[in-house]
Structures are given as C-alpha cells and as structure tokens.
C-alpha cells in the first residue's frame, strides 16, 4: 500500500481536438467519476469544429486517411489494458482495434467498389464516384461503449466525413478515453468530436442543426425519441440511419452499409470529342 495519492482523471468533452469542459459547467457522476454533461451550446461548438474540419479531412488523400485510421488502431492496441480496466471485455477491445484496421483499409477501396463507370448512350465520359456527406451526427450505442462506438465512428470518418458523437450516456468513460487515443493518432482536430451527457437533451439539438448533413440514430433505443429526432432531421433533409430493428451483433461482419450511408454519389459527364 503506497502513501501516494492517485491523480484522478477529469473526464471532459473532446471538441476540435481539445478537451474542454462543458460550457455549462455541469457534470454527472459515472463510476465514481464526474463526467462532463454537455449542453446545446456544446453541440453547437462541436458542429462548428466538425464543419471546420471537413475541408481538410475530406480533401486529404484516401491513403492518408487510411494511414491515420490504422494509427488509431496502433494507439488503441497500446492502451488496451486501460479499456479493460474501464470494464470492457478483452474481446470487445480486440474487436474494436480490429475494426479500426478493417475500416482503415476501406479508405482507398470504397470508391472502387461503390463507384461506377457508366456506359451512357452517347459520346460522353461518365463516372459516378462517392464523396463524403459532410458533418455526421451520431448517437453512439448505449450498450457497447467502445466496440459499438468505434463501429459507428470509423465508417463515417474513413470516407472523409467529420462527426459529432453523443457517447453512451450510461457508460461514457471508454468514449472519453478513446478521445485520448484519437488525440494522439494524427487525426486532425474536429474530425471526431465526442460529447458526453444526456442524449434526450443534446440529441434534439444535433438532429435539428441545419449545418449537420446526416444523423445516425443507431444508439437511440427509445422509439419515440428516435421518431422525434428523425422528424427534426427532416428540417434540412439529413440522411438518417434509423435505430436497428433488432439488436446489432457488434462482433459480426459490419458490411458496407455504414460506409455508404454517409456517402453522396456524384455523377460527372463530359463530352468526348476532338
């Protein structure tokens, strides 16, 4: 038994690459730790940070984004014990690491799988290629605070989107710790913004925000809340991923759905002539 007094961590938000407290000055108690209780203004700030990061991140090469996602996996691997210490199962942590690796590889392949050369009936060069939607709001799964979180964030950002994530309300500590991983992974500030707090409080602000292009409601088990968030999202025609009809097995092959949900397809025409 040491006499030394442990230095406790302050669990803060992750916005624009920095770790601010909630502007509201509020916190809530989780596993004997005070966790920042984000407000609507924190949502606003996070969206501003996410929007500011879109140009650089979507403009980075796919190779570069893939490298950075792989770097996240490397950093996470080095901290796996820490997540286990927060109550994550080793299997979940391993799967979360591997998920970063899996999505990292998609960065420079999704356009080849999801894009097309179109054989139009005329003298035109014609291709369709996917592009990121922009800023994606995500309500992370409440019951899978690390693997579920990684499984919704990685596919959104690997294609060049930036995200504002509402972390698992009841188990936010892995999300805040993941933020520390992201902050040391060469991921540009603002690409991932993580807010902790009450989804019922911040969710409506995120869903109704006119500068958010898409929203992922995977982590909204409350059907009534999900419906109202989807309604709010209609204000600017956000792309919406609804809560799953049946619980998701986060260890299963995720498929392409979460990548393509936040991609726009751009078709470019040009005449062919001399």
């Amino acid at each position: 038994m040491s006499d030394r007094l442990a230095v406790r961590k302050t669990y803060k938000l992750y916005v624009g690459g920095k770790f601010p407290r909630s502007e509201s000055g509020r916190s809530y108690l989780v596993q004997d730790s005070n966790v920042a209780l984000a407000s609507r203004k924190d949502v606003r700030d996070a969206v501003v940070a996410a929007r500011a990061a879109v140009k650089g991140w979507s403009g980075a090469t796919a190779y570069n984004r893939g490298q950075i996602l792989y770097r996240v996996a490397e950093m996470l691997e080095g901290r796996r014990d820490q997540f286990v210490g927060l109550g994550e199962t080793p299997a979940d942590v391993d799967a979360a690491i591997d998920r970063w690796v899996w999505y990292a590889g998609w960065s420079d392949k999704i356009a080849q799988v999801y894009g097309n050369a179109n054989p139009v009936a005329g003298p035109y060069f014609n291709i369709s290629a996917p592009e990121p939607t922009g800023v994606v709001g995500i309500v992370a799964p409440p019951d899978s605070p690390l693997l579920g979180l990684v499984s919704v964030v990685a596919p959104a950002i690997v294609t060049g989107n930036t995200v504002v994530v509402l972390a698992s309300e009841g188990q936010p500590l892995p999300a805040v710790t993941l933020a520390e991983v992201l902050a040391t992974s060469d991921l540009p500030g603002g690409v991932v913004n993580i807010l902790t707090g009450r989804v019922a409080e911040t969710g409506p602000w995120l869903a109704a925000h006119m500068d958010v292009n898409a929203i992922d409601l995977t982590g909204v088990p409350d059907a009534e809340l999900a419906r109202s968030l989807e309604e709010a999202a209609a204000g600017n025609l956000k792309r919406v991923v609804r809560p799953p009809a049946t619980p998701i097995d986060w260890h299963a092959d995720p498929g392409l759905g979460r990548l393509t949900a936040f991609l726009e397809t751009k078709t470019v025409w040009h005449p062919k002539g001399v």
Binding site: G122, P123, Y124, P271, K272, G273, V274
Partner: peptide, 9 residues
C-alpha cells in the same frame, strides 16, 4: 485565342 469548339455540342 479563338474560343474552342466542342465537337459533341
């Protein structure tokens, strides 16, 4: 310096 002519158009 004359404007180009797009064949298809």
């Amino acid at each position: 310096g004359l404007p180009g002519v797009d064949q298809v158009g």
